[in-house]
């Protein structure tokens, strides 16, 4: 029982970050019909910024670690937002709804940004100090307090996005554009503006995921790449553009990783995920909750 509980808790915690990452990707796809291969670079930048600024802050002001963390988190989000604005207006705006063009552009950006990060931050893995120490036990599974807090924030952010998309006017516009761009424009929705908002929100989700993963792992400039391939698998399973699908897929993949990773090996877990996707495609080519592509 203890082991199962531990694995379940583990799943919830990995899953929460996967969900955030994949949500951003699927939102950007829904609105812009662009698969952003540079999505992971927002994630990596946020984690790197926290890893670099946090020790400085601690040395200078001597606040408790969690205060520093949130200040640096805000700073990281701001940096990512600036990068997002630049990338959108310089590049992505010209390749809206162009799958192949935007693919090459975003892969170019992936390489470019990874190189720039390597240049600025060097390749050495960095570690962020623990936010909170201590452990709690849930159903017989032990969990660090900081992981619990991080998992809570991730779930809150997911819930927040869900509410934003389902309850607000902006969310309705995002959904309308994703459903049918021309019909949405006929209703007076400004497509370009909405797709910009979609891109920024999606990138913001990646940044939040990156900020949350920072205290839990060693951070290097290629951190985002592992998450990117898993996020692709998640959004295929969930259906491209589907927000509930990304949430479901994220936890499913986290479950496979947590259980197969424990009983076998982490790379077998990835292979198992791929097999799962192949089976899924045989049964439902459009994903669990996705619509068929027209």
């Amino acid at each position: 029982m203890g082991l199962i509980a531990q694995l379940l808790v583990n799943m919830l915690q990995i899953g929460a970050v996967y969900v955030l990452f994949a949500l951003g990707l699927t939102l950007v796809f829904g609105v812009m019909k662009v698969i952003n291969f540079a999505h992971g670079q927002f994630f990596t930048l946020a984690a790197l910024m926290i890893a670099v600024t946090m020790p400085e802050f601690t040395e200078r002001f001597g606040f408790p670690a969690w205060v520093d963390y949130f200040v640096c988190f805000a700073l990281a989000l701001l940096t990512v937002a600036i990068l997002g604005v630049v990338l959108y207006f310089v590049g992505f705006e010209r390749y809206l709804r162009d799958l192949i063009g935007s693919f090459i552009l975003s892969v170019g950006l992936l390489l470019l940004l990874e190189g720039v990060y390597l240049w600025i931050f060097t390749g050495a893995p960095r570690v962020v100090p623990k936010l909170l120490t201590g452990q709690v036990s849930i159903l017989g599974g032990a969990l660090e307090t900081q992981r619990l807090v991080i998992c809570g924030i991730a779930l809150a952010a997911t819930f927040g996005l869900y509410q934003l998309v389902n309850r607000t006017k902006l969310g309705r516009a995002l959904r309308a554009v994703a459903e049918d761009r021309e019909a949405a424009m006929l209703q007076g929705i400004r497509y370009r503006r909405i797709s910009f908002y979609g891109f920024m929100i999606g990138s913001g989700m990646a940044a939040i995921a990156g900020g949350l993963i920072a205290p839990l792992t060693a951070i290097s400039p290629s951190l985002g790449n592992d998450y990117l391939s898993k996020a692709f698998i998640i959004i295929i399973i969930g259906g491209l553009g589907s927000i509930p699908g990304a949430i479901l897929g994220g936890f499913l993949i986290a479950a496979v990783e947590s259980f197969a990773g424990y009983f076998l090996d982490s790379s077998y877990a990835t292979i198992a995920m791929f097999m799962l996707v192949m089976v899924f495609l045989l049964v439902r080519p459009q994903g669990i909750l996705g619509h068929a592509e027209r």
């Binding site: 950006l109 390489l111 390597l118």
Partner: peptide
């Protein structure tokens, strides 16, 4: 990486 990615972009 920077130059190759930059050339593509």
């Amino acid at each position: 990486h920077v130059l190759f990615g930059g050339a593509i972009v």
